[in-house]
Design a protein around this nucleic acid. Structure first.
Lengths: 341, 341
DNA sequence: CTGAAAGCGCTTACAG
DNA sequence: CTGAAAGCGCTTACAG
């Protein structure tokens, strides 16, 4: 058995003794065409299993109706949840999605940007690779084609950016700990000042200040790679202090879970002695015991919003660049790791 | 600022006073073209930021170098790990990937298959939606374009299928429990006889038979939706029996974690009183306490293998259909939930 | 070594 | 109501 070639307009037209133009118009319900012709054409099209070659159509109109998406790592739950939203919203609006990973490698990221433009995508959705420093290349692409950043963004690129209310979310999380009566609140954040880490740290500081709680340098810990292992390691450091913290705010769930594991090991009571709050509402946060208080980030909504703005820009009659920054609201989910006791 | 149109061969040729053909050949390092011309052309191309329109190229050669991927749900870790492998392997071989979700909806799945073919993808990679019954539509697509199934497959479609060694993996898991001295081994499986559930159940039965352990119907529990909640629910049933099981083999990690939660609740000692084994090696399996013994499925490898076979089929000179079934080896990861005590 | 021309499958302004 | 023709950007067999 060999693969059949797709039926073309030409074949239909030959069969029907009509011109290609007429067949095309009939299929597209052009008002000029008689109902009778339309019926005949459509019937044969169905019979011959005709499917339009969207490629040819798109090629002609210089629109591919494909969106390019570049993310650091597709297999993070938060990322794949965003992608789910992206795919669904895009399909709803008649677009398809090409997905690619940068693996947090800046070189790869630029490569991907370039192949995507070459490919003729109508626009690009991107979450920046960690430590993206050379923005010229990104800007160059941005000059040719609509671009929307989400999650990992940079204020240095004058395009629409979709983020969560990082600062406020962190503020709320820390405020929650304060209301619990905690005052020696440690934070585990990133060394590298990523957009996200910076904002969350700012929220932490604002909460302490607002409640007149002194900021203690010793309780501010940073790590290159904000992982479970590092959360555990840094928590061990916190536990070795003469005066231990009474709460830990980790800027990711993974680090928070590492913290809980370390606390378990040293039989520290959670939340009585030390409360823990994470960030992401990953599945793990409900599996770990005690269950983890965390910030829920609506990935689906982020994805949908990003698509909406990108398509708006693509389809805008003017090619003016819009540079909105859209903040998606998050919510604090209180669980056992910070329950009032 | 408005978006610039991409530079075309025509523009380059005008600028250089050469024909479009010569410019095209120079850029593609055709041996007929003089080095001098090549240099001039390439220099200007770089200068004018020329990027070939892959769309036009692909359109002409009837190859898009795009692979379509359809999965039930992108945000399952196992799925996104497979996708990671798919994307990486595809890019390595000069292909791009369009991803789409069926949401386990058969109608949606057919829709996706059709738009993908319309789109002119060179081949399709698919993991079937649950309860896919009407295969005619899938077969129809399969007649036009190479198709490779992975993970959720069906022997009723005569195409290459990439699976894990489901039966053997389950056998090994149950054998491991038997070697621990367990003999009342319960299984939590799916009601719906999916390919995966069926094979794992077969492995369970084979292990019991091989070790002369009676198969007790009461210990064989099924559920429509093999979730954490249902794992918990079914475990409660097991615990209410006069003679409790001494081990539980759940065919997914989620169900196994549900089981552990239920056992915790009733203060059953794991693994002394009841050991638990899951399937998937999800992140959760290391977060839960006790950590879960489970089967590691190399998603990355499944993805890469699927791409390899699909591209092989696409690029094969003959259009013969190949119908290999490829089994990827898994490994049992023993953790605390079934440790010898 | 270089160019003119055809063609991939479609849409659409222009004619009739 | 229908058709002939141009064109989207590229590659390549054919000519010179």
């Amino acid at each position: 058995m060999s693969k059949k070639r797709n039926t073309t307009l030409k074949e239909l037209s030959k069969e029907l003794n009509l011109s290609i133009s007429t067949v095309s118009r009939a299929l597209n319900d052009h008002p000029d065409i008689s109902q009778d012709t339309k019926d005949r054409v459509k019937k044969l099209a169905k019979q011959m299993n005709y499917v339009p070659n969207l490629f040819a159509r798109g090629f002609r109109s210089r629109e591919t109706h494909i969106l390019g998406v570049i993310v650091p790592n597709i297999s993070h739950l938060f990322t794949s949840t965003i992608l789910k939203g992206v795919i669904e919203e895009a399909e709803l609006r008649g677009y398809r999605v090409i997905i690619s990973e940068s693996n947090n490698d800046e070189i790869k990221q630029v490569e991907m940007l370039n192949t995507m433009t070459q490919f003729g995508v109508d626009g690009i959705l991107m979450s920046l690779a960690r430590k993206t420093t050379k923005l010229e290349e990104v800007l160059k692409v941005f000059n040719r084609i609509p671009l929307v950043l989400f999650d990992k963004v940079s204020s240095k690129i004058p395009c629409t950016q979709i983020v969560i209310n990082e600062e406020e979310a962190a503020f709320n999380a820390v405020e929650h700990l304060i209301e619990l009566g905690k005052e020696r609140i440690a934070i585990i954040k990133e060394t590298e000042n990523s957009y996200n880490s910076e904002k969350r740290y700012a929220g932490y500081l604002r909460a302490l200040n607002q409640y007149n709680i002194p900021v203690r340098d010793k309780l501010i810990l940073s790590t290159e790679d904000i992982s479970l292992a590092n959360g555990r390691r840094l928590t061990n450091i916190l536990l070795s202090m003469k005066k231990r913290p009474d709460a830990i705010f980790a800027i990711t769930d993974n680090a928070a879970i590492g913290a809980i594991k370390a606390l378990h090991k040293f039989k520290v009571k959670i939340p009585e002695e030390i409360a823990v709050v994470g960030f992401s509402n990953s599945i793990n946060s409900t599996i770990i015991s005690p269950s983890l208080t965390t910030v829920d980030q609506p990935g689906d909504k982020i994805g949908r919003t990003a698509v909406r703005f990108l398509i708006e820009e693509i389809e805008a009659p003017s090619n003016d660049v819009m540079t909105k920054t859209v903040e998606i609201k998050t919510s604090l989910i209180v669980r056992d790791s910070s329950l009032r006791v």
